Each structure stands twice: as structure tokens, then as C-alpha cells.
Amino acid sequence: MLRTLRALLPTLLDLIVPTIVYYLLHWLGVADAPALIAACAATAGYAVPRMIRRRRVDALGLLVIAELAATTALLTATGDARLALLRPTVYLTVAAAVFLLSCWCGRPLTYTGATPMATKGDPERAAAYERSWHNSPQMRSTHRRLSATIAAAMFGYAVLNVVIVHAFPVSQADGLQKVPGIALILVVMVLLRSRVPRLSRIVDAEQRRPTDTPQPTPAAGA
């Protein structure tokens, strides 16, 4: 659980830091639009150095940069802070669609996300985990159901975010929309952890399988 929480810490910071900055500036009397721009800039202030330290641009880093650019463009062009608050709805809807698409095209996104927990960093278990995708219908169905469930949760948050933004003043909506965001992260953590014992048993069985046993034809899209 601690390993999973550590992996999700950057995402939690992306939710918490801009909220703190926004409310601090709002308390100091800064208008909504510039306060939101400053909040996004604060997120970039640690996200970009994080990418530089890791010497690679990951998906999360790209999302932060894209969000920053979109927010700044929207607020500069319209001055409407509500439009900026709707940005999570857009990329969560896209993310939900990608999760669903991965259930039928290639491998579900949870396959990669659950790898460290199911293999515990053991190269032999990692190889068995890879083989299990081809040999175990249970492995494939577990990841497909899990990815579909996460997609549904993302879409639910996207819809809820629209309701929050339009039902509350900007000063309240900015904070309230983070609550389901944090809840979504916790749900993903719980879902992944709840499937780890099952995935681990599948990997254990694959490790016990004789290496000279003929392997089934890989599933379509594998």
C-alpha cells in the first residue's frame, strides 16, 4: 500500500498544491482568474523540475503542462474562471475512453499499473506475469473488468465535476471538485490492491508451469 501511495503522490500533489495556492490568493483578495492561473503555475513549478530530475517526460508531466497551457489560454481569452474549472471534465472523459478502448485493443492499462504489485520487482515473476497474459483467461478478464470499472469511475467524476462547477460559486467549486478527485485516486488504489492477491496467484501458477509446456495462441490484441 505504501508503494502504491508513493507512486500516486505526484497526482495527489497536483490536486492539493493548486488548491492551497488558489485559496491563499483568494483570501488575499486576488480575483478568481489570476488566482487560478497562479495556482496552475505553482503546479508547474514543481512538476517541471520533477521531470528534469527524472530526465524524462512522463504522461503525468505532459498532462500538467497541457492543463497549464489550456487553463491560461481559457482565462486569458474569456476571463471566465468556470471554463478553467471544467478542464478536468475534458481530460477525465478522454482518459475514461482510453481505459475502455484498452480493454479491447492491446492490453488494459491496469496491466501495467498492477505489474509492480503483482511481481514485487522480481524479474522471474515479471516474466511469469508477461506469460500469464497469454496463458490465463482469468488474467485477461481481471484486467479488462478492472479497467472498465476505473473508466466508469472516471466518467462519473467528470459528470459530477460539471454539476459542481455550475452549482457553486467559483471560490467553492475549486475546492469541492478536488474532493471527488481524491476519492477517485483512493478508489483506483483500492481496486488495484484488491486484485493483487488474485493476480499474484495467477503468477504463482504460471511460475509452477513447466517451461516446455506448449503455450496457447496469444489472445487477439495482445
Rank of each mutant, 00 (worst) to 15 (best):
P218T: 02
L68N: 05
G113A: 10
V98D: 03
I20W: 06
L9P: 08
G61F: 04
L8H: 11
R6M: 09
H26R: 14
A153L: 14
R6F: 08
A152I: 06
V163R: 07
M154G: 05
L186A: 13
G156D: 03
C105D: 13
A41V: 13
A81V: 04
R201A: 09
R53H: 12
L5G: 10
Y46W: 07
P123M: 00
P10D: 05
M51D: 04
T115K: 15
A44C: 15
A167L: 07
P116W: 01
A114H: 00
C105G: 10
R208N: 12
I52C: 08
T43L: 12
A96E: 03
E130I: 04
A152C: 14
L100I: 05
A128H: 01
F99E: 08
V57N: 09
D212A: 12
P10H: 05
A97P: 07
H26E: 11
V57R: 10
R144K: 10
I182S: 05
P108M: 00
R131H: 11
G45H: 04
V196G: 07
R140Q: 00
A148I: 03
T43K: 09
G221C: 02
P137Y: 01
R107D: 01
L83W: 11
M51N: 03
N161S: 13
A41M: 14
